[in-house]
Design a protein around this nucleic acid. Structure first.
Lengths: 152, 152
DNA sequence: GCCAACCGGTTTCTTGTGAAACCATCGGCG
DNA sequence: CGCCGATGGTTTCACAAGAAACCGGTTGGC
C-alpha cells in the first residue's frame, strides 16, 4: 500500500487536532488575558470553583486535568489577586479547601458570558448534530489515547 | 437563561479539545521519543520533507504551522543528527533549501508505519463517516479561530 | 550605484512547564 | 505509642517555547 510509504501531515489526525486546539487556545487565552488578566490555567481553576461548592485542591486537579504543579501555581496567583480563598481542611491538615471569594464570583460572572459568546462564535456554521457527534468523537479519542498511554 | 450564569468546564469545547489534543500528543511524543529519539517538532519537519521534494525553510514553516524559531531549532538538531541536509538557495543567499538525507529517508520510512498504526489504533471504534465529519468540523473550527484571532 | 526598508533565519532573554526532590501530615502496623 | 510508607502540596531544576533583538543579504526608490 502506498499509505505505508508516505504520510501527508495535513491529513494526519494528531497534527490536525493539535494545531486546531492550539489555535483556539491562543484566541481564548488572548481574550482572557486582555479583558481579565487571567491565564488559561487560572481560568480553568476559576471555572471549576465557579460551579459553586468549595473543593479541595485534589478535586480541582482532577476536574481541570492539569498537573498539581500547574494548579498549585495558578491557585497561588489567584489567591494573590484576591479571587480565591484557601483554608486548610479541618479533617486533614495537608489538604486545602479552595473557593472563589466574593470578588472571584464577581469576575466569574463576567467571564462566563464571554466564554459562551466566544464558543458560540467558534461553532457558528456547525449544526447541533455535528457538535453532538464531535463531542462523542472527542470522548472516544480521549479514552483511546488514555488507554494506549497507560499500557506503555 | 441559566446558561449564562455558569459554565461546566467538562462541556466547554475549547477545554475538551485542548485536553484531548494534549493527551494524544503526549502519547505520540512518547512513542517518537522512545523509538526514534525525535521530538514532535522534529517529527513534523521530517514529515514534511518526507513528501519528497526539497523545500526552503519558509515552506516548512508554513506546512508545519510552527513558528520560525521552533523550526529553526528543530532543523538544527536534525542536521546535527545527520537526518536533514541544509544548503543555501542559489537564487537567494538568505534562504535555505532543506531535504532529508539518505539516513533521514531511512528513518522516515520506519516512522510512517508506526504513525499510521498509532492513528489506526486511536480511531478504532470510529466509523469512516464519523472521521470524515471530524475532519470537516476541525477544518471549520480552525478557520473560525483564525478569523476571530486575526480581527482582534 | 547607494541607502533605507525589508526579509530569512538565528540568538538572546524571559517565561511557562513538568519531573523529581522536598516538606509536612496522615494512617497503618508492630 | 512510635516508626514508616503513602499522600497533599510546594519548591527546585532543567528545558521548551515565543517575543524581540539581531545579523546578513536583498530589493526598491532616488
Amino acid at each position: 500500500m502506498s499509505e505505508a510509504a508516505s504520510l501527508e501531515l495535513g491529513r494526519f489526525l494528531p497534527y490536525r487536532l493539535s494545531v486546531t486546539a492550539e489555535c483556539i487556545s491562543r484566541v481564548f487565552a488572548e481574550s482572557y488575558e486582555r479583558r481579565f488578566g487571567l491565564t488559561i490555567p487560572e481560568w480553568r481553576v476559576m471555572a471549576v470553583l465557579g460551579e459553586g461548592a468549595p473543593r479541595p485542591t485534589q478535586a480541582v486537579i482532577e476536574a481541570t486535568e492539569m498537573d498539581r504543579v500547574k494548579v498549585s501555581r495558578a491557585v497561588t496567583r489567584l489567591v494573590d489577586k484576591g479571587l480565591v480563598t484557601r483554608r486548610t481542611a479541618p479533617e486533614d491538615q495537608r489538604s486545602q479547601i479552595l473557593a472563589l471569594s466574593r470578588k472571584g464570583f464577581g469576575l466569574y460572572g463576567q467571564i462566563v458570558p464571554l466564554a459562551h459568546a466566544l464558543q458560540a462564535e467558534l461553532t457558528a456554521g456547525l449544526g447541533a448534530e455535528e457538535l453532538a457527534l464531535l463531542d462523542r468523537v472527542l470522548e472516544s479519542l480521549h479514552a483511546k489515547a488514555r488507554e494506549i498511554g497507560s499500557r506503555s
